[in-house]
């Protein structure tokens, strides 16, 4: 049984102002993948997601997203970025912001439709922030805001979900709920999850990659101890307490 390839990177390299950030990345993501990406700070995880989204142009290599260029293929992607820099006083409610996820579906010059409003309602419900829909976005707590941004990504009805540390400021019960939501969503879409929380994601994801300029990935949930040590430049025991044996290759 073959699964459709949704993203394909071939020999991709990227640099900012001449400083290499990614080198020789080869990566295929399939329709039913739930891929976790770990790696040290500055390892290039965010940059990799941005290359898939066409927000950063690779210096070399080929990127295809749903068989097309990133610019054309990204309409099938839901994205939650790591940081959202916006003005706390910005005049928009939670509802307005989540609805923005529907822009691509609605199209220019049109008003939001009934479907758009229903999808927004469902996403707010799923993230349990329906009660805050009228609240100004900047006045939410960090975690509530993060939920709103996740809802905004879900409302696009994506076939691939790119999540850049989505649970960094979400409380533990919500985190558990969120991973359970991902468990359900993965029936319908591919998911790529960037996280530093190795112990938690190794429970949920079924493939794991480690990125530090180079990508260590075997289309499986296992990495060799040497690879982790190379990526993090420290002994495996220090990377996460008691976790690595779940993802480490047996010798």
């Amino acid at each position: 049984m073959t699964s459709k390839e949704v993203v394909c990177l071939e020999d991709v390299s990227a640099h900012y102002d001449g400083v290499p950030v990614l080198e020789g990345i080869n990566l295929s993501i399939y329709q039913d993948d739930f891929l976790g990406i770990i790696g040290p700070n500055g390892g290039g995880k965010t940059t990799l997601l941005k290359i898939i989204l066409g927000l950063v142009k690779p210096g070399r290599g080929r990127v295809s997203v749903f068989g097309d260029t990133p610019e054309k293929g990204r309409k099938y992607i839901g994205y939650v970025s790591q940081y959202s820099l916006f003005d706390r006083d910005f005049p928009a409610s939670v509802w307005d912001v989540v609805m923005m996820g529907r822009l691509g579906k609605t199209g220019l010059f049109r008003k939001y439709s009934k479907q758009d409003r229903e999808a927004t309602l469902r996403a707010l419900e799923a993230m349990e922030i329906l009660d805050y829909k009228g609240q100004q976005i900047g006045k939410l707590s960090g975690g509530q805001r993060q939920r709103a941004f996740i809802a905004r990504a879900l409302v696009t009805d994506p076939e691939l979900l790119l999540l850049d540390e989505p649970t960094a400021s979400v409380d533990t019960p919500m985190k558990t709920d969120f991973y359970e939501l991902l468990e359900r969503l993965r029936q319908r879409m591919a998911i790529v999850l960037v996280s530093h929380d190795i112990s938690t994601i190794s429970i949920y994801v079924d493939k794991i990659a480690c990125l530090n300029r180079e990508l260590y990935y075997h289309s499986s949930k296992e990495l060799a101890a040497e690879e982790l040590e190379a990526a993090y430049r420290c002994p495996v025991e220090m990377i996460a307490h008691g976790v690595p044996h779940r993802i480490l290759k047996e010798h």
Binding site: L53, L55, R74, K75, I77, Y79, S81, S84, F86, F90, A92, V97, M100, G101, L103, G104, L108, R152, T156
Partner: peptide, 13 residues
């Protein structure tokens, strides 16, 4: 005005 990056991703020119 709110988030150019996200707007780009969902296909706003």
């Amino acid at each position: 005005s709110f988030d150019e990056e996200f707007a780009t991703v969902v296909g706003v020119p």
